[in-house]
């Protein structure tokens, strides 16, 4: 049994999401190799991951921007030598891996949260309202990994060999035009230790900023939002926490003016501690919160910010 993990490097360094996928791959019980579509320096960085025995580096420009049309043939071509191909369930992994699976005529197992056996996994369905145990009958496994539920492998201490691989290069049917990156000094939502999240009760974008940002600044927290707040246009979609947005599991999640719709809970209920502030004592968020405060967020949150 040998597993190949498709890594999504952060520039020249290792992403936390990759470390979680490596842990899932190790649990399959065999050797773990990592494919880095990026620079040689990124390849060297991945060679240090504990438990990884080989790193494959594909440094062709065609693989630089995560274009599935170019990456999928590369990965499918390498898959011959592997029993399993895994990727973190990031937007890149979710984009590329099903394309690989179809090329291999394999039914992908998406978003696993636990490895139960060599071909048996647990995965959430219905927005996390049910957990399915599934068993694959395909000769090869193609898997995406929910990164918040696996411990991160140690980024250092390993000494994998590094090998250069070449693939078919550009498929010529797609072109990367640009990335409008969110520029922020804040920690990234999916890796933040603390998240302050706002809901529709924040009224508008300006109020959201005035109430949520000072508290997040004080705590060094990432800022999230419910789908309702995103739909109402208070904040961009990449703030969205939930079934249809990001899945997060910080140490502390502070939900402000969020009622706790099923689809929101699906994205944050694995948080270690949930704190809820809401004026409605019957809001469903209080049923999952470890600490709740019933009150008007427009007075409570500024007071909280000033007292921390």
């Amino acid at each position: 049994m040998t597993a190949l993990v498709f890594a999504e490097p952060h520039g020249d360094s290792v992403a936390d999401a990759t470390l979680a996928a490596v842990t899932a791959a190790s649990q399959l019980g065999g050797d773990v190799h990592v494919l880095v579509a990026g620079s040689d320096a990124a390849g060297q960085a991945h060679a240090g991951i504990a438990g990884v025995s080989k790193v494959l580096v594909a440094s062709d420009d065609a693989y630089a921007h995560g274009l599935a049309e170019n990456l999928a043939p590369l990965i499918a071509g390498l898959a011959d030598g592997y029993d399993a191909v895994l990727a973190p369930a990031t937007t890149t992994g979710k984009n590329v891996l099903p394309r690989v699976a179809a090329m291999l005529d394999v039914m992908q197992v998406s978003d696993i949260i636990n490895v139960e056996g060599p071909k048996t996994f647990k995965r959430p369905i219905y927005a996390g309202n049910a957990i399915a145990t599934v068993e694959s009958s395909d000769p090869k496994l193609v898997i995406t990994v929910r990164t918040t539920t696996f411990e991160k492998a140690a980024a250092e201490g390993g000494s994998a060999s590094v090998e250069t691989v070449a693939g078919p290069g550009s498929a010529g049917s797609s072109e990367f035009v640009g990335l409008d990156a969110v520029k922020s000094d804040r920690p990234e939502l999916t890796s933040a230790k603390i998240i302050v999240s706002g809901g529709r009760a924040l009224k508008d974008g300006e109020t959201f900023e005035q109430v949520i940002t000072p508290l997040a600044d004080k705590l060094g927290a990432a800022i999230g939002a419910s789908r309702a707040a995103v739909d109402a246009g208070y904040v961009p979609n990449d703030y969205q926490v939930g079934q249809t947005g990001k899945i997060v599991a910080p140490e502390v999640y502070i939900a402000i003016g969020i009622s706790g719709a099923i689809q929101h809970l699906a994205g944050m209920k694995d948080s270690k501690t949930i704190v809820a502030i809401n004026k409605d004592p019957d809001a469903p968020i209080f049923q999952v919160a470890d600490v709740g405060l019933v009150g008007d967020l427009f007075t409570v949150v500024p007071e909280l910010t000033s007292k921390l």
């Binding site: 990031t90 937007t91 640009g178």
Partner: peptide, 10 residues
């Protein structure tokens, strides 16, 4: 809609 922002492809 990607993790780091908005990406455009042609």
């Amino acid at each position: 809609e990607v993790d780091g922002g908005l990406e455009t492809v042609k």
